[in-house]
Protein backbone atom coordinates (compact mmCIF):
# COMPACT_ATOMS: atom_id res chain seq x y z
CA UNK A 1 0.00 0.00 0.00
CA UNK A 2 1.35 3.41 -0.96
CA UNK A 3 1.00 5.81 1.91
CA UNK A 4 0.59 9.55 1.68
CA UNK A 5 2.80 10.96 4.46
CA UNK A 6 1.68 14.27 5.94
CA UNK A 7 4.05 16.23 8.18
CA UNK A 8 2.66 19.05 10.31
CA UNK A 9 5.34 21.44 11.58
CA UNK A 10 3.81 23.54 14.34
CA UNK A 11 5.25 26.56 16.09
CA UNK A 12 4.98 26.10 19.87
CA UNK A 13 7.09 29.08 20.87
CA UNK A 14 6.12 31.27 23.81
CA UNK A 15 4.21 33.71 21.65
CA UNK A 16 1.74 30.94 20.85
CA UNK A 17 0.80 30.69 24.54
CA UNK A 18 -2.89 30.94 25.36
CA UNK A 19 -5.54 31.19 22.65
CA UNK A 20 -3.30 30.35 19.67
CA UNK A 21 -1.97 27.07 21.07
CA UNK A 22 -5.43 26.03 22.23
CA UNK A 23 -6.70 26.82 18.74
CA UNK A 24 -3.96 24.67 17.23
CA UNK A 25 -4.94 21.79 19.50
CA UNK A 26 -8.59 22.13 18.51
CA UNK A 27 -7.63 22.50 14.89
CA UNK A 28 -5.64 19.30 14.99
CA UNK A 29 -8.58 17.50 16.56
CA UNK A 30 -10.91 18.74 13.82
CA UNK A 31 -8.36 17.82 11.16
CA UNK A 32 -8.02 14.23 12.34
CA UNK A 33 -11.68 13.56 12.99
CA UNK A 34 -12.64 15.02 9.60
CA UNK A 35 -10.05 12.98 7.74
CA UNK A 36 -11.23 9.82 9.45
CA UNK A 37 -14.56 10.26 7.67
CA UNK A 38 -12.87 10.36 4.28
CA UNK A 39 -12.29 6.87 2.86
CA UNK A 40 -9.31 7.95 0.75
CA UNK A 41 -7.56 9.72 3.60
CA UNK A 42 -8.39 7.02 6.14
CA UNK A 43 -6.65 4.45 3.97
CA UNK A 44 -3.70 6.38 2.64
CA UNK A 45 -2.87 9.41 4.80
CA UNK A 46 -0.29 9.05 7.56
CA UNK A 47 0.29 11.90 9.96
CA UNK A 48 3.30 13.12 11.94
CA UNK A 49 3.49 16.08 14.31
CA UNK A 50 6.73 18.02 14.68
CA UNK A 51 6.78 21.02 16.99
CA UNK A 52 9.42 23.70 17.25
CA UNK A 53 10.12 26.11 20.09
CA UNK A 54 13.62 26.43 21.54
CA UNK A 55 14.24 23.11 19.84
CA UNK A 56 12.44 20.93 17.35
CA UNK A 57 10.99 17.58 18.27
CA UNK A 58 8.78 14.97 16.70
CA UNK A 59 5.87 14.45 19.09
CA UNK A 60 4.12 11.89 16.90
CA UNK A 61 6.01 9.71 14.46
CA UNK A 62 4.37 9.04 11.10
CA UNK A 63 1.17 7.25 12.17
CA UNK A 64 -1.81 5.98 10.24
CA UNK A 65 -4.86 8.18 10.74
CA UNK A 66 -6.87 5.44 12.37
CA UNK A 67 -4.27 5.00 15.12
CA UNK A 68 -3.40 8.68 15.55
CA UNK A 69 -3.77 10.12 19.06
CA UNK A 70 -3.28 13.77 19.64
CA UNK A 71 -0.10 14.77 21.48
CA UNK A 72 -0.11 17.42 24.18
CA UNK A 73 1.18 20.79 23.01
CA UNK A 74 2.72 23.43 25.27
CA UNK A 75 3.87 26.85 24.20
CA UNK A 76 7.17 28.27 25.47
CA UNK A 77 10.64 29.23 24.26
CA UNK A 78 11.94 30.60 20.97
CA UNK A 79 11.35 29.63 17.32
CA UNK A 80 13.78 26.99 16.00
CA UNK A 81 12.22 26.70 12.55
CA UNK A 82 15.54 25.84 10.91
CA UNK A 83 15.98 22.90 13.23
CA UNK A 84 12.43 21.76 12.47
CA UNK A 85 13.19 21.70 8.74
CA UNK A 86 16.32 19.63 9.34
CA UNK A 87 14.33 17.29 11.60
CA UNK A 88 11.52 16.68 9.13
CA UNK A 89 14.13 15.88 6.47
CA UNK A 90 15.75 13.34 8.77
CA UNK A 91 12.43 11.81 9.82
CA UNK A 92 11.27 11.53 6.21
CA UNK A 93 14.47 9.61 5.42
CA UNK A 94 13.60 7.15 8.18
CA UNK A 95 9.86 6.94 7.78
CA UNK A 96 9.00 7.29 4.11
CA UNK A 97 9.32 4.08 2.07
CA UNK A 98 11.30 4.33 -1.14
CA UNK A 99 10.18 2.68 -4.36
CA UNK A 100 12.01 -0.50 -5.34
CA UNK A 101 11.60 -2.94 -8.19
CA UNK A 102 9.39 -5.18 -6.05
CA UNK A 103 7.48 -2.58 -4.15
CA UNK A 104 6.01 0.79 -4.89
CA UNK A 105 7.08 3.21 -2.22
CA UNK A 106 5.09 5.94 -0.50
CA UNK A 107 3.85 9.07 -2.22
CA UNK A 108 5.95 12.16 -1.75
CA UNK A 109 5.13 13.74 1.63
CA UNK A 110 2.91 16.77 2.12
CA UNK A 111 4.35 19.30 4.55
CA UNK A 112 2.34 21.98 6.33
CA UNK A 113 4.28 24.54 8.35
CA UNK A 114 2.58 26.96 10.70
CA UNK A 115 4.46 29.72 12.54
CA UNK A 116 3.63 33.02 14.20
CA UNK A 117 7.12 34.54 14.33
CA UNK A 118 10.56 34.92 12.79
CA UNK A 119 12.89 31.95 13.14
CA UNK A 120 15.41 32.49 15.93
CA UNK A 121 17.90 29.91 14.74
CA UNK A 122 19.88 29.43 11.50
CA UNK A 123 17.10 28.93 8.97
CA UNK A 124 19.41 28.45 5.99
CA UNK A 125 21.23 25.51 7.54
CA UNK A 126 17.97 23.61 8.13
CA UNK A 127 16.62 24.72 4.78
CA UNK A 128 19.66 23.28 2.99
CA UNK A 129 18.91 19.85 4.48
CA UNK A 130 15.20 20.21 3.75
CA UNK A 131 15.82 21.09 0.11
CA UNK A 132 17.85 17.94 -0.45
CA UNK A 133 14.67 15.83 -0.11
CA UNK A 134 11.77 15.40 -2.48
CA UNK A 135 8.50 16.73 -1.14
CA UNK A 136 5.07 16.49 -2.69
CA UNK A 137 3.77 19.87 -1.64
CA UNK A 138 5.03 22.25 1.02
CA UNK A 139 2.63 24.84 2.39
CA UNK A 140 3.85 27.44 4.89
CA UNK A 141 1.38 29.45 6.92
CA UNK A 142 2.20 32.78 8.55
CA UNK A 143 -0.19 33.04 11.49
CA UNK A 144 -0.77 36.64 12.55
CA UNK A 145 1.22 39.83 12.01
CA UNK A 146 4.39 38.57 13.73
CA UNK A 147 5.25 36.07 11.01
CA UNK A 148 7.25 37.13 7.98
CA UNK A 149 5.91 35.80 4.70
CA UNK A 150 9.18 36.73 2.91
CA UNK A 151 11.05 34.35 5.21
CA UNK A 152 8.53 31.58 4.48
CA UNK A 153 8.87 32.21 0.74
CA UNK A 154 12.45 30.98 1.06
CA UNK A 155 11.07 27.61 2.11
CA UNK A 156 8.29 27.21 -0.42
CA UNK A 157 6.38 28.90 -3.19
CA UNK A 158 3.13 28.04 -1.44
CA UNK A 159 2.75 30.55 1.38
CA UNK A 160 -0.54 31.50 2.99
CA UNK A 161 -1.16 33.98 5.77
CA UNK A 162 -3.70 34.44 8.54
CA UNK A 163 -4.45 38.03 9.58
CA UNK A 164 -4.79 37.02 13.19
CA UNK A 165 -3.85 33.99 15.24
CA UNK A 166 -7.24 33.69 16.93
CA UNK A 167 -9.15 30.51 17.33
CA UNK A 168 -11.64 30.87 14.47
CA UNK A 169 -8.91 31.80 11.97
CA UNK A 170 -6.63 28.98 13.04
CA UNK A 171 -9.56 26.58 12.89
CA UNK A 172 -10.30 27.72 9.33
CA UNK A 173 -6.68 27.03 8.41
CA UNK A 174 -6.82 23.51 9.82
CA UNK A 175 -10.07 22.83 7.99
CA UNK A 176 -8.37 23.84 4.79
CA UNK A 177 -5.39 21.60 5.59
CA UNK A 178 -7.85 18.78 6.14
CA UNK A 179 -9.57 19.41 2.80
CA UNK A 180 -6.13 19.58 1.15
CA UNK A 181 -5.07 16.23 2.58
CA UNK A 182 -8.40 14.77 1.42
CA UNK A 183 -7.88 16.14 -2.06
CA UNK A 184 -4.27 14.95 -2.07
CA UNK A 185 -5.14 11.40 -1.04
CA UNK A 186 -7.89 11.25 -3.63
CA UNK A 187 -5.62 12.63 -6.32
CA UNK A 188 -2.91 10.04 -5.79
CA UNK A 189 -5.42 7.27 -6.21
CA UNK A 190 -7.33 8.72 -9.14
CA UNK A 191 -4.41 9.99 -11.18
CA UNK A 192 -1.40 8.23 -9.72
CA UNK A 193 0.47 11.45 -9.00
CA UNK A 194 0.81 13.92 -6.16
CA UNK A 195 -0.49 17.45 -5.99
CA UNK A 196 2.40 19.90 -6.33
CA UNK A 197 0.89 23.36 -6.71
CA UNK A 198 -1.58 25.38 -4.69
CA UNK A 199 -3.98 25.40 -7.62
CA UNK A 200 -4.44 21.65 -7.18
CA UNK A 201 -5.65 22.13 -3.60
CA UNK A 202 -9.15 23.17 -2.66
CA UNK A 203 -9.59 26.96 -2.63
CA UNK A 204 -8.72 28.32 0.83
CA UNK A 205 -11.45 29.91 3.00
CA UNK A 206 -11.58 33.74 3.33
CA UNK A 207 -9.52 33.62 6.55
CA UNK A 208 -6.60 32.05 4.68
CA UNK A 209 -4.88 34.44 2.23
CA UNK A 210 -2.61 33.19 -0.52
CA UNK A 211 0.64 35.16 -0.53
CA UNK A 212 1.73 35.87 -4.07
Amino acid sequence: MRRLPVYLLLDTSGSMFGEPIEAVKNGMQVLVSTLRQDPYALETAYLSIITFDSKAQQLTPLTELSAFQQPDLRANGTTALGEALALVAKKADQEVTKTTMEKKGDWKPLVFIMTDGEPTDDLNKGLAEFNKRKWGMVVACAAGAGANTDTLKKITECVVSLDTADSSTIKAFFKWVSASVSAGSMKVEETGSEATTLSELPPPPPEVNIVL
Partner: peptide, 13 residues
Protein backbone atom coordinates in the same frame (compact mmCIF):
# COMPACT_ATOMS: atom_id res chain seq x y z
CA UNK B 1 -8.60 8.76 28.50
CA UNK B 2 -9.07 9.85 24.87
CA UNK B 3 -9.88 7.19 22.31
CA UNK B 4 -11.08 7.24 18.72
CA UNK B 5 -13.16 4.63 17.01
CA UNK B 6 -12.71 4.75 13.27
CA UNK B 7 -15.57 4.04 10.93
CA UNK B 8 -15.30 0.74 9.09
CA UNK B 9 -13.56 1.90 5.87
CA UNK B 10 -16.01 -0.20 3.88
CA UNK B 11 -18.93 1.80 5.28
CA UNK B 12 -17.46 5.02 3.89
CA UNK B 13 -17.60 3.76 0.31
Amino acid sequence: IPVAFNPDPRSLW
